[in-house]
């Protein structure tokens, strides 16, 4: 029987690497009986999904502040 520590590490790894069949089985059995690890797995999926959305930069409503823009413009003009 795997510990919660081991199972949750495998959960994190499984987001990137395929687990071996035996690992999948052990994790599956553990998840059936462990509410904490089930919650953890769900949250990791959620977290990964929403962090991935950073690729779509429209998602965040911030712009380069005016002052910074002006400063960068001056620097660029000096180097042009």
């Amino acid at each position: 029987m795997l510990s919660c520590k081991k199972v949750s590490l495998l959960v994190v790894q499984s987001q990137e690497l395929p687990l071996r069949f035996s690992q999948k089985m052990s994790v599956g059995i553990h998840l059936l009986i462990c509410r904490g690890c089930r919650a953890f797995k769900k949250q990791m999926t959620f977290l990964q999904h929403f962090i991935k959305r950073t690729d779509n930069d429209d998602f965040v409503d911030v712009n380069l502040p005016k002052q910074a823009k002006e400063r960068i413009k001056q620097t660029l003009l000096n180097h042009f």
Binding site: S3, C4, K5, K6, R35, G36, C37, R38, A39, F40, K42, Q43, F46
Partner: peptide, 18 residues
């Protein structure tokens, strides 16, 4: 996060409607 037996010290609880 885990005790010496590898159990959660404070197990995650389900998030409501994240």
């Amino acid at each position: 996060f885990f005790n010496e037996k590898g159990h959660w010290i404070s197990p995650p609880t389900a998030w409501n409607n994240p």
